[in-house]
């Protein structure tokens, strides 16, 4: 079995060394910097590792540096300094080897103006050295609900369909690493669900997934680990569940009453807020204080009409880290 996260990764070793020793990780980035020509620092001293077979989320607001990081991996942007290694191959020195094992769905919509979807995917297979890929192309077209449109010129497709075609192009050579930069932008809910199903299937088959998304709910549901990045710096990098715990396991209980309780001193041990219009009380508590809070709520001597529990979401973590109120 391949060991995934090796702390003592040596950049002087050849990829063959790692394959022979059974030692390689999917992505290693060390002290990566990118400064554009106008002195804008897009990435600052980025250190991260992506393990084989995981779904890794890269989150951040617009201009955070997510796309720059992805574009460095796939050769669209040159790094200023630092070390980047994909499955043991160094970027950019061994860029052809790197490109063979990654598939990229770029953020910007683009589509060819001359060829049909089927032709585009056949060419894409050929670029990766695959001569006869019709069976897999058909599987992708059906999985992404593009099969009925396979003879249409790619440029004439709607935005959502263009996005799906870009996803199909990125997957057509069965890449070891699939990089998805905002893959669901402009795609409707039904197709978003089918796209994530396909991504999960590929992941189960061993494909490592690196994705950026603005949809934090999606990231929370699908990602094994998440890196939150802002202004070129990593703010957090952890397993998704650990990030969610980071704000202290705080929960919010909202109680709705027919008549507002008057003896609010009964819940003085907790922080709470009142909404007199809704006749509701919101009580903030930690996970281990459930019994205590229920006991004190009983002391209010009013029957609650409804109850809602709100847990911290990734969105709360994200807002907290990037300083959005």
């Amino acid at each position: 079995m391949i060991q995934c996260a090796i702390k003592s990764f040596e950049f002087n070793a050849t990829p063959q060394d790692y394959v022979e020793k059974g030692l390689y990780m999917t992505l290693t980035i060390k002290k990566l910097n990118k400064v554009y020509g106008n002195d804008f620092t897009a990435l600052h001293e980025i250190d991260l590792e992506v393990n084989e077979g995981e779904i890794f989320g890269l989150l951040g607001p617009n201009g955070a540096g997510k796309s720059t990081l992805i574009n460095i991996l796939c050769g669209i942007v040159r790094k200023s300094s630092g070390e980047v290694s994909v499955c043991g191959f160094q970027v950019p020195e061994q860029h052809i080897d790197v490109k063979k094992i990654i598939g990229v769905v770029p953020q910007e919509l683009c589509a060819d103006g001359f060829f049909s979807i089927q032709q585009v995917l056949e060419y894409q297979s050929g670029y990766y050295g695959i001569k006869n890929n019709l069976e897999y192309i058909e599987y992708l077209l059906k999985s992404l609900s593009l099969y009925d449109k396979k003879d249409e010129i790619a440029r004439h497709l709607s935005g959502g369909m263009k996005r799906r075609l870009m996803v199909a192009k990125a997957m057509v050579h069965k890449p070891k690493i699939l990089i998805l930069d905002e893959p669901t932008a402009g795609v409707d809910i039904h197709l978003t669900v089918s796209l994530w199903e396909l991504v999960k299937t590929l992941n189960k088959q061993g494909t490592t997934i690196i994705l950026t998304t603005h949809n934090l709910k999606e990231a929370e549901e699908i990602c094994d680990r998440i890196c939150i990045i802002n202004k070129g710096n990593i703010l957090a990098l952890d397993k998704t569940e650990n990030l969610l715990k980071r704000l202290g396991d705080t929960k919010l209980m909202c109680l709705f009453f027919k008549d507002m309780p008057t003896n609010l001193e009964a819940i003085d041990d907790f922080k709470y807020s009142l909404n007199k219009n809704e006749k509701s009380i919101s009580i903030s508590y930690s996970g281990h204080e459930v019994s205590k809070v229920m006991h004190q709520v009983n002391s209010l001597n009013q029957v609650a009409m409804d109850l809602k529990i709100k847990e911290d979401s990734l969105e709360d973590v994200f807002k907290h880290l990037i300083g959005v109120a």
């Binding site: 669209i76 683009c110 060819d112 670029y127």
Partner: peptide, 11 residues
């Protein structure tokens, strides 16, 4: 059409 960047990504 924006496809020029794909040239850079091809092996």
């Amino acid at each position: 059409t924006g496809t020029v960047s794909e040239l850079l990504v091809l092996p």
